[in-house]
Simulated scan of single mutants.
Amino acid sequence: MSATATAGTGTRIGGALAGFRIAVTSQRRSAELIEALERRGAQVLHAPTLRLAPLAEDAELLAGTRRMLRLRPEYVLVSTAYGFRRWFETAEAVGLGDELAEVLRAARIHVRGPKALGAVRALGFEAEARAGEELTSTMVAGLAPLLEGKAVVLQHHGIGDDEAAATLLEAGTRELLRISPYRWVPPEDAGKLEVLLRALCSGSLDALTFTSAPAVVALLEAARHNGCHAQLLEALQSTICTVAVGPVTAAPLLEAGISPLVPARHRMGAMIHTLVEHLGRRGALECATVLGPCQLRGDTVHLGGRGRELGPGQLRIFKALLEAGGNVVSRGTLAALLPDGSSDHALDMAVSRLRGALPDARLVSTVVKRGYRLNA
């Protein structure tokens, strides 16, 4: 399947996500997420869509920090915990930590959510208020009536927060300074991103996870660049389960017409729990057959206590047969699931390989001159 995970012909260790193929698009904290998914039996494809620029490349952040020290803002709005910590660490590394701390203590600090609040307090500062919905827009809207003639610093999460900045300017701020403590740059291995796009467009994945809005934007832009944007949208709007860690991350997906799962608590653990529940409830297909109950979980067919993994092409054909519930699926319909230009012979060979991969070849019956069906 990829450099990270390859489909085989046996069975994987059981778990709540056994048989499911899930993509992880994050760089930061990816090891933690991958380990949690694999521990539950999932097959994971890791393909970061972006990476964080090293601290050594943060000249722009330091320039903004020095400007803030001269500005002495009345209000500082903090969007992300990681961003606030990284901002302070970068300032300390060049000897600006004490002066930055002095300015922050003199300002009225407002935070977007509980993680940002925790980061502010951990560094010895106090926040005046926290946004109720954990959204930058909510934080800004609540403050807007108080900001006329004030100098404001907005620490944002890396894709600009243009709407929030516009609201602050419309509120009559004397000066607005936007600080982005981390910059997103292209991934080191662009080949992994291309592998991810092919897997998504071919239907070789069951779920796609996002932990940041910039990662979403980067994937959609990569799809445009590779000429598969329409295919990607179709896959994410229909067959592939998309999961976002919170509403900020979900926003660019919703703008693209994709409806992701979003946990009630905007945490990685809650995201994993939401995904487990969803795939357990809707990700498995079942059908009664003459050989006994047959279940498809992700890429694994279970029959009579045996499980066999299917390759991408085999999976597309078997899923179509399973969804038909014993009704005939025409040759034309099945051929359309194979690569363009597939012949009748290619379809027959594909079905033959599918039978060889199943726990019992008798699961698939031939209906002469019409097509194939599940032996239900």
Rank of each mutant, 00 (worst) to 15 (best):
A3Q: 15
T4R: 11
T9E: 15
L17N: 05
R21L: 03
T25A: 09
Q27N: 04
Q27R: 08
A31I: 06
A42I: 09
Q43C: 14
A47R: 04
L50R: 08
L52D: 08
L55T: 13
L55M: 15
L61A: 08
L62A: 13
R70F: 05
R70N: 13
R72L: 13
P73K: 02
A81R: 03
G83K: 06
W87V: 04
E89R: 14
G97S: 09
E99D: 14
E99H: 05
A101D: 09
V103I: 06
L104M: 15
L104S: 06
A106C: 10
A116Y: 04
V120S: 05
G124K: 05
F125T: 00
A131W: 00
S137W: 06
M139D: 08
A141K: 09
A141S: 14
G142I: 09
E148G: 10
G149H: 13
K150P: 08
V153T: 10
L154G: 00
H156M: 08
H156Q: 15
H156K: 12
D162I: 06
G172T: 03
G172Y: 10
T173C: 10
I179C: 06
P181R: 01
R183S: 09
D189F: 03
V195C: 02
R198S: 14
S204F: 07
A207P: 04
F210W: 12
S212P: 05
A215V: 04
V216K: 00
V216T: 02
A218K: 11
L219I: 06
L219T: 01
A222N: 02
N226R: 10
C228P: 01
A230R: 11
A230S: 14
Q231R: 13
Q237P: 01
Q237R: 15
V243I: 00
A244C: 03
G246S: 04
G246H: 00
P247T: 14
L254W: 06
G257H: 04
L261C: 10
A264S: 13
M268D: 06
G269Y: 01
G269C: 01
L285R: 14
C287P: 06
P293G: 05
P293A: 12
R297Y: 10
G298I: 10
T300S: 12
L315H: 11
L321G: 08
L322C: 07
A324K: 04
A324M: 05
V328G: 04
L334E: 04
L337C: 02
H345C: 11
V351T: 03
R353A: 12
R355H: 13
G356Q: 12
P359F: 04
V367R: 12
R370E: 15
R373F: 04
L374N: 09
